[in-house]
């Protein structure tokens, strides 16, 4: 319980910042994000871009899985749909990036609506398997629809440009990624203060009860799929301008699993948690790489252990969080915060 946090109106209770301190923290975070590209090295900017893109994708997955309760094992495929749509719009139609990326979002959104259609009839584990099928089938389409996707050779895309300014280095792409990531985080946080967003949560908690309360189940589930895939599509579009090339093997099932790991490690149904999860899951393998590289000083063939170690740590991380901290990093953060709210009084 937060001391001295007394609300007298509904508006105050629904406010996105519950205390002035959390508003201040957000400004600090934004300040750090803006200052980051001016001080960080290339490698860290590359990682920051990766984290930013994954944040947008993971937010989409959390909207669908964490907030609406629809499990998706095909999220990476939607990122792929967005990436291919963006690349095709940019190369064939010659659209500038500020039209091509939304086009990717829109294409993924439509694909999401299509895959989400059965969600009224099937749910839970069955839906998970249906989205797994979507992942396998879409991957097959990426590889084999050579006329459109360029097959395994993929599509090369020129850097994004705006009024003669080229987003050609990771430092410049960072502004694009960070801007869009911030915007989409803000949008997601506000989504759950609207009727649509509240309906998502009601459907997650008990879909039949939600229906009795006048929520149109089909529309709600389809909207969740569409919004979620739109996020994935935007992430895919950014991926295109980040990697400058789209190939089918960039969107495997293991990436879908990685997105799921992000929202589980971060916290299902938590916007803040999604950010934590995207950062954590992206950086842990990099930290591991650093450790293993350090170990080469003692044993020269340590690098050959990197791949299996990554698998083991990744799996153990998922299992560990699920067994010991099912609400993820967001809950750990909240516990620390609660401690300081009460401090110096004991719990």
């Amino acid at each position: 319980m937060l001391i001295g946090n007394y609300k007298v109106s509904y508006a105050a209770d629904q406010a996105i910042f519950r205390t002035p301190a959390s508003r201040a923290w957000l400004w600090v975070l934004l300040g750090v994000a803006v200052a980051f590209p001016f001080v960080a090295g290339d490698y860290f900017l590359y990682l920051a871009n990766l984290v930013g893109i994954f944040t947008i994708a993971a937010l989409g997955l959390n909207i669908l899985t964490g907030f609406t309760g629809q499990i998706s094992l095909g999220h990476a495929a939607f990122v792929g749909v967005g990436a291919y749509a963006t690349a095709i719009a940019a190369t064939r139609l010659g659209l500038p990036f500020w039209l091509a990326v939304p086009a990717g979002g829109l294409a993924a959104c439509l694909a999401g609506a299509l895959v989400g259609t059965p969600s009224l009839r099937i749910k839970g584990l069955y839906l998970a398997i249906a989205t797994l099928a979507a992942q396998v089938i879409l991957e097959w389409v990426f590889t084999n629809w050579t006329g459109m996707t360029g097959g395994i050779r993929g599509i090369n895309v020129a850097p994004a440009g705006l009024w003669g300014f080229e987003f050609d280095t990771d430092r410049r792409v960072y502004f694009l990624v960070a801007g869009l990531a911030a915007f989409h985080t803000w949008a997601a946080a506000n989504l759950f203060r609207t009727r649509v967003g509240r309906a998502f949560i009601a459907v997650r908690d008990r879909d039949i009860s939600a229906e009795l309360m006048g929520i149109d189940l089909f529309r709600t589930k389809i909207s969740a799929f569409m919004i979620s895939s739109y996020y994935a599509g935007i992430a895919g579009g950014l991926w295109v301008y980040f990697a400058k090339v789209v190939t089918p093997e960039s969107f495997p099932l293991s990436l879908s699993i990685q997105f799921l790991a992000m929202i589980i490690v971060g916290g299902l149904g938590s916007i803040k948690g999604t950010l934590f999860g995207a950062v954590f899951v992206t950086l842990v393998p990099e930290g591991l790489r650093a450790v293993v590289q350090g170990a080469t000083a003692y044993s020269p063939d340590a690098m050959s252990w990197l791949a299996p170690m990554k698998d083991i740590v990744f799996g153990a991380m998922i299992v560990g969080f699920l067994v010991f901290e099912p609400h993820g990093l967001a809950e750990i953060w909240n516990r620390i915060r609660r401690f300081f709210w009460l401090w110096p009084f004991p719990k």
Partner: peptide, 16 residues
Amino acid sequence: ISIIMVTIGLSSVFKG
């Protein structure tokens, strides 16, 4: 979702 993910996590550990 938790049960699915826990078995996926296990599969990753086994592979490693």
